[in-house]
Write a protein that binds this DNA or RNA. Structure first.
Length: 560
RNA sequence: GUGCCCGUAGCUCAGUGGAUAGAGCACUUGACUACGAAUCAAGGGGUCGCAGGUUCGACUCCUGCCGGGCACGCCA
């Protein structure tokens, strides 16, 4: 909020003097390094010097001259090569703090935009429980969705269930075999070569009667009548349902809830795929070769065309993807965001091709590749594979370190960095997890406010506008205030950069400022003036922390 | 072979055109008879993989190379 205001004022000054319009993304307004003067600083003179071809110093001095006429800026400093730094006016501090304290949802954009964002993430195959890799995607996607929501967009969280195709059949057969073995109907399970060998399949076989109490009877009946296909169909249906429940429960424990679990199978109903493909056919983007149907993705920059219908007459997954994209748009999406694993980077071109072939701008699509999670075991790299059953379950992690620490751990990394995951390390680090650092700061704030109330200091009755002075601020107090004022800018910037890690970083900085302040100064003292001033800062700070926690999906603990 | 991601302190990582490159962990030293020491203050530790280029300015952008990882099906 405040950064935006400052940027606008600076841009206006430049417009007045030089008649040029500055790019918002390039213009920076930020806190200068520790050893430099001023609470805020800007690179504005450098930007202007690029187009005007004058020394940054001269430009800075002229801009500074005009800044003096604006009461936003109180002390203006020129710093060596061409920076302009300044302090904010005390009055501005006060007005902003009052708003933070008094306005409900001050940080949340009140004007809801018309745009609907379809955000797809996790979308793990429905053939097993979620592992830590999905955990990273879940945390990332959820916070991204929160950020969009916070900034006034409508967001639809979607989980694509790949419940169609061969892998499901293999899973169903594996499950069936395990079931027969478990109930001694068969001596030994015969898991197909490409089947699912992991122990978790045995667990599912053990527990599946929880969603189908009459399963044993049905199995025996079908076996007696030699209805092998029906038997597999039954295990397909039950297995899918069981796994979906499992995944949904895990995600719920992780604080993530989806608006829609979209079934790939549903695209096959009512010839939907056929209809959408025909739409592209009309544009002559589809041709036949060697008995198969091909989509001319090369027209949109792909390196080769892709098959959409195999020579055996089956649609490929790529065909259902085409229909799926159209379905998102049919359901009102103006913007499509997909969070995919690094193994999908080759699909970006293809999906862009789909969007364009369907007649939409490719800008409406944003694909974020969330880099891989490497599973380590005491330093050794280990291959995670659902088929082989080698994985670290998200459930295990949650049990081990808890939801807050797990979310924080995943969110600290940005999306394009690899993450080495060592369960031993996670266990060890859980006690030192920075999430406790930020939660502790919040608990301390609550405690002080509680303490003040016990001392019968009723801040609610104090008139902040008239009776509280924000003069003579200590450095630590100013740090807290700038942290408070910058919060909404952090939320906007993180959204624009698709970077939840930025939120985490800023929250940590804020907590750090608070802990420093706490150790140096006392809030509740004999001196009424100072006590009120500090209590008001803390009231605002508490609100800011609550907003950060809400976006990150972390619990705000009043006591640790 | 082609494409994508990564290479920053002993370890785990922030930082994507700006100010003396930052945190946490680990290590050393100090701070509780006052709102919680799960905290704070201070210290050591770096040729930002290497070499060129672009410019007022490069960890950041471009080119080449080295090292690590992933992906390149009429599988999903």
């Amino acid at each position: 909020m405040i950064t935006k205001l400052l940027k606008e004022s600076l841009k206006k000054i430049v417009r007045d003097i030089y008649e040029i319009e500055l790019n918002d993304m390039e213009l920076k307004v930020e806190k200068p390094p520790e050893n430099q003067p001023g609470e805020f600083g800007s690179n504005i003179a450098f930007l202007v010097s690029k187009t005007v071809k004058k020394a940054p110093e001269d430009i800075a001095l002229s801009i500074m001259n005009n800044m003096k006429n604006n009461n936003l800026f109180s002390n203006i400093f020129y710093v060596k090569p061409g920076y302009i730094n300044w302090n904010l006016s005390i009055e501005l501090y006060k007005q902003e703090l009052i708003k933070v304290i008094k306005e409900q949802n001050y940080f949340k954009e009140k004007q809801v935009k018309n745009e609907l964002i379809n955000l797809e993430f996790v979308s793990a195959n429905p053939v097993g429980p979620l592992n830590v890799v999905s955990g990273r995607a879940a945390a990332y996607g959820d916070v991204l969705a929160n950020l969009f929501d916070f900034n006034g967009y409508r967001v639809h969280r979607e989980f694509y269930v790949n419940d169609h195709g061969n892998q499901i059949k293999l899973f169903a057969i594996s499950l069936k075999e395990r079931y027969l073995e478990l109930h001694k109907i068969k001596q030994k399970a015969e898991i197909p070569e490409d089947g699912y060998k992991g122990d978790y399949v045995i667990d599912i076989a053990k527990n599946i009667s929880s969603i189908a109490p009459d399963i044993k009877q049905r199995v025996l009946n079908l076996l007696y009548n030699k209805m092998e296909e029906e038997l597999i169909n039954m295990f397909t249906e039950l297995g899918l349902r069981y796994v979906k429940n499992w995944q949904e429960t895990t995600l719920k424990n992780f604080g993530v809830k989806f608006d829609l679990w979209f079934s790939e199978n549903s695209l096959y109903e009512n010839n939907y795929i056929e209809k959408i493909i025909n739409k592209i056919k009309e544009k002559e983007l589809i041709y036949e070769k060697e008995g198969a149907l091909w989509f001319k993705t090369t027209q949109f920059g792909d390196d080769k065309d892709r098959v959409i219908k195999k020579s055996d007459g089956q649609w490929t997954y790529f065909a259902s993807d085409i229909a799926y994209m159209q379905s998102k748009i049919d359901r009102g999406a103006n913007r499509i965001i997909m969070i995919l694993g690094p193994d999908h980077h080759g699909y970006i071109k293809r999906i862009e091709a789909i969007i364009q072939a369907l007649g939409y701008r490719k800008e409406m699509l944003k694909i974020i590749i969330l880099q891989q999670v490497n599973l380590l075991e005491s330093g050794e790299k280990k291959k995670m594979s659902k088929r082989e059953g080698k994985l670290v379950l998200l459930d295990e992690l949650l049990e081990l370190v808890g939801c807050d620490a797990a979310r924080y751990y995943f969110l600290m990394r940005n999306h394009n960095s690899h993450l080495d995951f060592d369960i031993e390390l996670a266990k060890e680090q859980s006690e030192k997890n920075p999430v406790y650092y930020v939660q502790y700061a919040y608990a301390r704030i609550c405690n002080i406010l509680l303490f003040a109330r016990e001392k019968n200091i009723e801040i609610e009755k104090v008139n902040i506008e008239n009776d509280v002075e924000f003069t003579d601020l200590e450095k630590e107090e100013k740090d807290l205030i700038t942290g408070i004022l910058q919060a909404s800018d952090v939320f906007i910037e993180s959204m624009e950069k698709y970077a939840p890690s930025l939120v985490v970083q800023k929250l940590y900085e804020l907590a750090s400022s608070f802990h420093s302040f706490y150790n140096k100064y006392r809030v509740v003292t004999e001196d009424k003036k100072t006590t009120f001033k500090r209590l008001f800062i803390l009231l605002a700070l508490k609100q800011v922390f609550l907003n950060y926690f809400k976006i990150l999906g972390i619990t705000a603990k009043e006591r640790m």
